[in-house]
Amino acid sequence: MVKPSLAVATSPAAAAPGGLAVSLQGVNKSFGMGNTYLPVLKDINLDVRRGELMLLVGPSGCGKTTLLSVMAGILDVDNGVVDVFGARVDKLSQSKKTRFRQANIGFIFQQFNLIPTLTATENVAVPLIIAGQPYRAALERARHYLSLVGLGERLEHFPPQLSGGQQQRVAIARALVAEPRLVVCDEPTAALDSSTGQLVMEMFRNVALSAERAIVVVTHDNRIFSYGDRIAEMLDGRIVDIHDNPDRVK
């Protein structure tokens, strides 16, 4: 089993049980310069708690995906604090950021991004192989996670041989296999029909979520809003509202 470690300072909030998974303070991010200057994130302050499934919602172009990228450490901020489980991600060098992602972040993409020439098992094993785990051990662990998401019968199938819902379940297994503490999902149900989308979100709650893990889901699919513990609404690069979800599915 991979037990990733990265020597980083831990904030008091992260150290406390039930503390914060992600803390963003005064985060700004822009693209371009001169005539093409475009501020995308404006003074973002946001906390994501451990054991929480947070939905990040808002119209297209409001900065949801950029914010997700910042949390995941794949996009640098112009200024502000990005604290993920006590690590100041905004202060890490690129190589440390790469190792941080390897150890702490799981990714789920709208288009799944499964490598079509690898079997489901091999796709799920990729994060473990990146982390340096032996190939056979990685495959063994990947099979276990595929069984957890109900694909024990599809281990040797290639992505093109799977339905959209099955591919997203493979992606969920891939996101979880290295036991990350933060899972970021970009429009995970956008490419799925309604019932399959519901199934995937149920899987997030039942399989992916745990007391020490947080999940952040970017979506504008209001059919799945009921699966979030809290919902952060964005508009024009700002967070305009954060509220508990009264309709949350138990």
């Binding site: 995941a72 794949i74 190589s95 992602r101 990714f107 490598i115």
Partner: peptide, 16 residues
């Protein structure tokens, strides 16, 4: 490209 991007996001270094 998108698969290499995904690998990079998941923590594969440029040298890898």
């Amino acid at each position: 490209e998108k698969y290499f991007g995904a690998l990079k996001a998941m923590g594969a270094g440029s040298l890898t």
